[in-house]
Nucleic acid binder design. Structure first.
Lengths: 154, 154
DNA sequence: TCTGATCTTTACGTTCACGTCAGATTTCAT
DNA sequence: ATGAAATCTGACGTGAACGTAAAGATCAGA
């Protein structure tokens, strides 16, 4: 591969800049198990990341922002993501027996559905709030129109 | 009014139970200015609340939950709400001059629109995420179907 | 009026999600 | 090889949002 060098050449500061956070945050996420710790890194050496890991971190922060959950809850949600990644990895090697493949895919589907349920619930709550605000706005606008009408009469 | 007694008979523990929180939280919200402190309460006496205030607290906690903002941000958002309440109070007394009424209503409209903008933005982000999850689910489902097909052939 | 439940203020404690500092180490570029 | 820049590992600090404990006051009911 031509980009074997560029693939792994991202250092923690670069990653932080790319996703708009700080090195400390990344280390913290690794510390609490939210991000996997690079397994083959002798303690003391610099962490190296791939672009794929940058994307993953982006997704993590997006979920955190959108769902507003604690990092602990997020971790359980992402354990699902982890599992899915595992599934994809296993599936690429075609040598898994169909029974096992089926199990993995079903599990995957379950995780997605759990996330979807959560997201849908919040989305519907927000939409409800949006409608309510629109109603209120309508009422205020009507009052303003009434006021205008009065002004014309007077 | 027949319910002047029941109106003001809610104590802080009742309110907490009604909205699903604790007295401490309510006092804290008052302390940081998120909730108005009952003006005519000599220090040391028990706080008394009306059902209207319960509703208001419910709304506050709902916004906090849905928008996921800090209490400080929430306070500025609710200052708008406060202003709207003020407007309604002033408008009920019909003796405000139309010019002033117009000003108040316009201000009100502005506040609502700011909130609406915030809510809409988040709602759209969430909906986007929802669609993405649906897409992923579709892909997983297709893979499962493919697997089933294979099984039939074999 | 008395009593037990609830509330008051004051103040220190706690958890989460990082920030910040220090001193040693590693990496990159020259 | 060497110096500057970035990173490493602890460790302690911090702000937000409450929890908790203490000691006394207030309130509702008998």
């Amino acid at each position: 591969m031509t980009d074997e060098r560029t693939e792994m050449s991202l250092r923690i500061g670069d990653v932080a800049r790319l996703v708009g956070t700080t090195p400390r945050t990344i280390r913290y996420y690794e510390e609490i198990g939210l991000l996997p710790e690079a397994p083959a890194r002798p303690s003391g050496r610099h962490r190296l990341y791939t672009h794929a890991e940058v994307e993953r971190l982006r997704e993590v922060m997006r979920l955190k922002h959108l769902l507003g959950v604690s990092l602990e809850e997020l971790k359980t949600l992402l354990t699902a993501e982890e599992a899915r990644a595992e599934v994809r990895a296993q599936l690429r090697r075609e040598d898994v027996e169909p029974t096992r493949r089926r199990e993995l895919l079903d599990e995957s589907l379950g995780h997605i559905e759990r996330q979807l349920e959560l997201v849908r619930h919040r989305a519907s709550e927000l939409t409800k709030l949006e409608h309510e605000l629109c109603e209120t706005r309508k009422r205020v606008r009507r009052k303003i129109r009434e006021l205008e009408a009065q002004a014309v009469v007077a």
